[in-house]
Design a protein around this nucleic acid. Structure first.
Lengths: 166, 166
DNA sequence: AAAAATATGTCAGTCATGTTGACATATTTA
DNA sequence: TAAATATGTCAACATGACTGACATATTTTT
């Protein structure tokens, strides 16, 4: 376990950078590479998955807020969101105070789909967390938080900290 | 610093999963969102950057090996690699033992470009590492390694561990 | 020596996801 | 009433992936 591979002190700055970047690249790639199976059958892709995820995490999310989380234009979102609404996975309610707003919710069908998709990823991540150990997970979270752009960090961390259910 | 946000033990499995996934998503997004400026001016995109990176890291890399690292088809690689060769950033030498192979190297011009592009990312990551601290970086690496798909882990870790220069 | 396998490249068509720009509609605010 | 805001939509385009089919040079097998 005192593997030299993980001994940060034995790395130059450049080596730390390379190792961090490549590990991040490969880990991210392998982590998001799977959901396709479930979604592809329904004609959905990653974009749909992201929308399902954020709406599931933030019931009543406004379209403008979703756009900010996704960092895309409304035109890009449009296609994806429309099909999810058409196929009955997402419901749009008219805002109570402001009737211009559309508040987004998962339908029961949408919840089922999201659960099915999340299951694999959840297993994947929890297995990794267990293998790495609690201490490492804490470090993982710390570094990831530090990697978020300064202008975004506060917003994003409080978004992540929203009611996590269960 | 004993922030409840980072206290892993205080999280249910589902909460660990959500926090890990969302942090990974936002951190990755912000980390790779920048190189565009430098590359876009030259008509290059992320795909070109990845090729420059891996060829830079593995001088003499064979095309087949590059394809495996990138996880894409040769047709996809073709356009990207061709333009990099045309514009003088990458050189293809014929294999010494096996003349069918093309061994890839950065030209001096390619090295300059890659350095320029890597500079920002390197600052970004090292700043995050310094803010998070050595202990956290080690945990970061551990978790990322664990997140790599089992079938790929050995190959990838030894790839990452290749001569890291400097 | 001929046949099969391998490493690479290329043409052509398609798809998913992002972009801009222009405009439309409903609703709220000034 | 006029202006601002939240959302949606049409059209054109870019990037980076994909599949399928085929070509060429070279090495390996028979």
């Amino acid at each position: 376990m005192t593997d030299i591979f993980f001994d940060v002190e034995k790395h130059s700055d450049h080596q730390k950078f390379l190792k961090g970047m490549e590990l991040l690249y490969f880990a991210y790639r392998d982590f998001i590479s799977w959901p396709d199976d479930v979604l592809q059958t329904l004609g959905f892709g990653r974009a749909h998955h992201r929308v399902l995820h954020f709406v599931g995490r933030n019931p009543g999310l406004k379209v403008a807020e979703l756009l900010k989380l996704l960092n895309i234009t409304k035109q890009s979102l449009s296609r994806v969101l429309s099909t999810l609404v058409e196929k009955g996975h997402i419901r749009q309610d008219i805002g109570a105070q402001d009737r211009r707003q559309r508040l987004l919710y998962l339908t029961d069908q949408g919840k089922i789909l999201l659960n099915k998709v999340a299951e694999h990823q959840k297993d994947h991540m929890l297995k990794a967390f267990n293998n790495a150990g609690t201490q490492s997970v804490e470090g993982f979270w710390h570094v990831l938080s530090a990697l978020i752009a300064d202008e975004n960090r506060d917003d994003i961390l409080s978004q992540i900290n929203r009611d996590m259910g269960e």
